[in-house]
Design a protein around this nucleic acid. Structure first.
Length: 267
DNA sequence: GTTGAGCGTT
């Protein structure tokens, strides 16, 4: 009874949906219930959450029984501080089934589901069209970003969507002066160690890679990210377990000339 | 433990 949206949509025929944005990721329906219930009769509250992690996406849907109450809640709760964050309450524009909603009320539903429902022509396309709907995460959560991209792989449209939301941010001003500073610092560094005591230390960037390990390969080192290979992976047989990295032609001599080929699939 | 534009499930 306390948990909403646990069994699915109860009845959205005579309910008004409110979209609550900007809520904390820890805010739950129970936490919003008393807040919204104070302004009207809340039929149900649903908070979409990720299917992989199961965390809230940052917004919730509050269904009211009456429009007047919903409107009041929007006017009252819109801009309210919840859990230390200002939430944004407004009428939902889209319904759960892609229906059109006016003032939180569904005004357009399945047009064919009114007369005869004997035939069910809409009984296909019920697959999990996750990316079809443009399922996007809520943010580029640090490392999760890479993790997701690795999973989907090949989703160019996804990237496009993500980049689109940069319209509100302009952190380009923050990266100013850094280049100049770098240049200046580099200049100074050079002047300092002109040939005082470290002739081999004429690196323009002593802070970047002071000790790039041993130069195993005389040249060719385009890999800025030297991913460490699992020691146990190649320790299994004492040789390179890679199938295509050994010798596609059949050359048994692979231990002498370990081709620095990083064919791990940079794409 | 983390993040922050947006429109939804059994």
């Amino acid at each position: 009874m306390s948990h909403f949206g646990r069994q699915g949509p109860p009845d959205i025929a005579d309910t008004y949906s409110l979209l609550v944005l900007n809520i904390t990721f820890r805010t739950t329906a129970d936490g919003l219930f008393p807040l919204f219930d104070k302004y009207g009769k809340v039929v149900d509250i649903f908070i979409p959450r990720d299917r992989r992690t199961g965390e809230s996406r940052g917004f919730a849907f509050v269904r009211y029984k009456y429009a007047d109450e919903a409107s009041k809640a929007v006017d009252r709760l819109d801009g309210r501080m919840v859990d230390g964050r200002e939430i944004t309450v407004q009428f939902a524009k889209y319904g759960p089934n892609a229906e059109r909603i006016h003032k939180g009320r569904i005004i357009e539903t399945s047009p064919r589901s009114k007369s005869s429902r004997s035939r069910s022509p809409s009984r296909r396309r019920h697959h999990d069209d996750y990316r079809d709907k443009g399922y996007r995460r809520r943010s580029r959560s640090r490392s999760y970003d890479r993790y997701e991209r690795d999973r989907y792989r090949g989703g160019r449209d996804r990237d496009y969507r993500r980049r689109s939301r940069s319209r509100s941010a302009s952190p380009d001003y923050k990266r100013r002066g850094r280049g100049r500073y770098d240049d200046e610092r580099r200049s100074r560094s050079r002047s300092r160690s002109v040939d005082s005591r470290s002739p081999a230390r004429r690196s323009p960037s002593p802070k970047r890679s002071p000790s790039p390990k041993k130069s195993i390969f005389p040249k060719k080192s385009p890999s800025p990210s030297p991913r460490r290979e699992s020691p146990d992976t190649r320790s299994r047989d004492g040789r390179f377990p890679t199938s295509r990295s050994v010798s596609p032609r059949g050359r048994p001599e692979a231990s002498q000339s370990p081709s620095p080929r990083n064919s791990d699939g940079d794409e």
